[in-house]
Amino acid sequence: MADLPVPTLPWAHPLESRRARLEDVSAVRQELSAPVAAVDLRLDPAGAGPAAVAAVVGGPLPERPDTWTALPAGLALRLGPDEWLLTSSRARPEDWEFGVDEAALAHGGSAVDVSAQRTSLRLRGQRARDLLASCCALDLRPASFPRGRCAQTLLGQSAVLLVAHDTDDLQLFVRTSFAGYVADLLVDAAHDF
């Protein structure tokens, strides 16, 4: 895998056509996140598997579902009892999958490249949580959803993965095919902010 040339094929952000509309919203800054390599890791949380993967990705995996930890160039988000989403802004997707998978395989786990499965938006500003709360039933108050928490839930009628970076800094992962809907929903909701 390591002998692949650097990709020169043009890459397009799934929300490129909505960039201007998102940036028009002044109350809450909504930025299109740059693409990252991402794998869906499935692994028995008991045993040595998580530590083995941690050694490869450069940081410990979160111990509880719905929480995340920082990796040197990305995030380790725990999505469920035996599932994590691991991202890296440095690695190439195929290398990221290969490396994590190799570490997991020895412990009965596996990693699948999902780099293009989701895209993400960063929402910054004092009213970022209020904006999300206009479309999301989850308790997003800072005390209930502090930095370090993440959650897979519904935004409008779309499944999303919400990540709390800080009180006024949140990130939203969404499947690429739903991204346009979610962006339109947020732009619409931001109308009244």
Partner: peptide, 17 residues
């Protein structure tokens, strides 16, 4: 809108299930 407790994610609205 009832809450249902997911053993992993805690109480969530029933439409998530």
């Amino acid at each position: 809108m009832q809450l249902i407790s997911c053993p992993w994610c805690g109480p969530r609205e029933e439409v998530e299930f």
